[in-house]
């Protein structure tokens, strides 16, 4: 599993491997070697890549990396695979609105086939004497409403399922 960086709207996958002198940078099918970086003052250093020696200014803020190289500024974001992959699939799981706690349905606000946008009210439910609103985790077409008014449900039950049709 390679490392991934976002630069502008593109994602770039790369891998660094140790070499005999410095590292090797693997980009797609290309290999650049040796590559090395020597730190000088705070926020500046020298990059060596193949036979080029390039002064670099940099600043790091969390996963964000700001680079000033050859008169241009680049803003990159390190895409932590654990987080990226978990989030990717969060989106997939968002096709279902689930119950955050056990409760009873008081009212349904949508019908099958309705096109709703993210955040739209789907249901009013009651739990522990409190009323709360179940909202659409993202936009879509309502495919199925799993419970009717008065029905009780368990925690994590699917309340409303969406399809992506028409989006």
């Amino acid at each position: 599993m390679k490392h991934s960086f976002a630069l502008d709207v593109e994602n770039y996958e790369l891998w660094l491997s140790p070499g005999q002198h410095g590292y090797r940078l693997h980009l797609d099918d290309e290999v650049f070697a040796p590559v090395s970086f020597s730190h000088e003052l705070d926020g500046s250093g020298t990059l060596v890549i193949a036979s080029d020696t390039i002064p670099v200014k940099f600043a790091i803020d969390g996963d964000r990396l700001y680079l000033h190289i050859r008169g241009r500024t680049y803003i990159l974001r390190y895409r932590d695979q654990l987080r990226t992959l978990a989030c990717l699939d969060d989106q997939a799981s968002h096709l279902v609105a689930r119950a955050p706690m056990p409760g009873v349905v008081i009212a349904t606000k949508v019908s099958r086939g309705d096109v709703v946008s993210g955040g739209a009210t789907l249901m009013l439910v009651e739990s522990m004497k409190l009323e709360f609103v179940v909202r659409a985790p993202r936009g879509g077409v309502v495919e199925r409403i799993h419970f009717g008014v008065g029905d009780s449900f368990e925690r994590d039950s699917a309340l409303v399922t969406f399809s992506e049709e028409g989006r």
Binding site: M1, L82, L85, A86, L88, D89, S93, D156
Partner: peptide, 27 residues
């Protein structure tokens, strides 16, 4: 996955996809 990671404790980590699971395993 939901049952074994939150009820039975038979599994330790819940992954939302195979790639997610592989990333967890690497970690």
């Amino acid at each position: 996955a939901r049952m074994h990671t939150s009820v039975s404790g038979t599994s330790d980590y819940f992954a939302t996809s195979e790639m997610h699971a592989i990333a967890i395993a690497r970690d």
